[in-house]
Simulated assay, not measured.
Amino acid sequence: MKKITCETTYTVHVHENKAGMRLDKLLSEEVEGLSRARLKGLMEDGHVFVGDLDGAAVMDGKKKARVGDVYIICVPPAVAAEPEAQNIPLDVVYEDDDVIVIDKPPGLVVHPAAGNADGTLVNALLAHCKGSLSGIGGVARPGIVHRLDKGTGGLMVAAKNDAAHTSLSEQFADHSLDRAYYALVWGVPKPLAGEIEGHIGRSPQNRKKMAVVERGGKYALTRYKVLKAFGTVASLVECRLATGRTHQIRVHLTSIGHPLIGDPLYGGGGRSRRSLLNDAARARVDALDHQALYAFELGFTHPRTGLRVLNKKKIPLFIKEIMCELEKV
């Protein structure tokens, strides 16, 4: 029998007023500091038991709780991160004992995966934080609470301990964070401010793409505002996320006919507009090897102090350079 090692254990008794509740919901309400997502992971890994640690493992969070049942939650020690620490320069915007906010450059992959075994943000964080990163994200993703696409630059927050990771994960789940992006797009959205809604799922035509789908997918809402128009050719748009879906801004803006300049996956709609550019602007756009998207604002409630932490950055140079040439078109 596999030996179970627990760093922390919690005991939960099911009382009459909790009978019939989903087990994952009940346990998350009864145990402070463990989110529903974290409990789901513990269940799937066989770390929740009936009666005692020698009892049967409960792996289905949908199971209905019964009066009199006793559940033992075993929280194992954080798994040591396997990626190698690498001395990759980081632009640190904010840092304390619990969290670190960095300005990720476009082109930097967030965590190791197939095709990117190292040279990632995780490798850089391991060197910078010297082992002080949350283990909840798993072996390959220590400290990582959310991600930005490889080609998207901007503000990201990472957790230095499990309590911070749990708190930030819950804020991402309930959409209580402030997240805003600069997006340089083809054309000028009409109206100049509004909301884009639409369920986002895997594109049936191209499995590498996401798309606004009529059936399935996950609900997504993006609020946008045109900050500056360059004739009818292009515009700088501020986007604020009310939800956080894969490629959400890229997909939503493409769905209304205004793909991001430089987007290698969704930017095909800019071909006709590209012909309207002068040589200098066209050269600047052609030199861009990633989408013109930048996460300039990130606000969250600090896991320890409960105070609001708001980080903001100015328009990045790679977008400013294109805007400068668009001004002359």
Rank of each mutant, 00 (worst) to 15 (best):
L177G: 10
P191I: 08
P191H: 07
G194H: 07
E195N: 09
G198I: 07
R202N: 00
R207V: 07
R207M: 10
M210S: 04
V212D: 04
V212H: 04
V213G: 05
R215F: 11
G217I: 15
K218W: 05
K218F: 08
R223H: 04
Y224S: 08
V226C: 06
A229L: 06
V233Y: 08
V233D: 02
E238C: 08
C239V: 00
C239R: 01
A242F: 13
G244M: 05
R245Q: 01
H247Y: 12
V251A: 05
L253D: 06
G257C: 01
H258N: 13
H258C: 12
P259I: 09
P259W: 01
P259D: 13
G262Q: 02
D263P: 00
G270V: 04
S272I: 13
R273L: 14
R273F: 11
R273I: 03
N278P: 02
D279G: 03
A283Q: 12
R284S: 10
D286Y: 02
L288W: 00
L293N: 00
A295V: 15
E297A: 12
R304K: 15
T305N: 08
G306K: 14
R308A: 11
R308P: 10
R308M: 11
L310Q: 12
K312Q: 08
K312H: 09
K313L: 15
K314E: 15
I315Y: 03
F318E: 11
I319S: 00
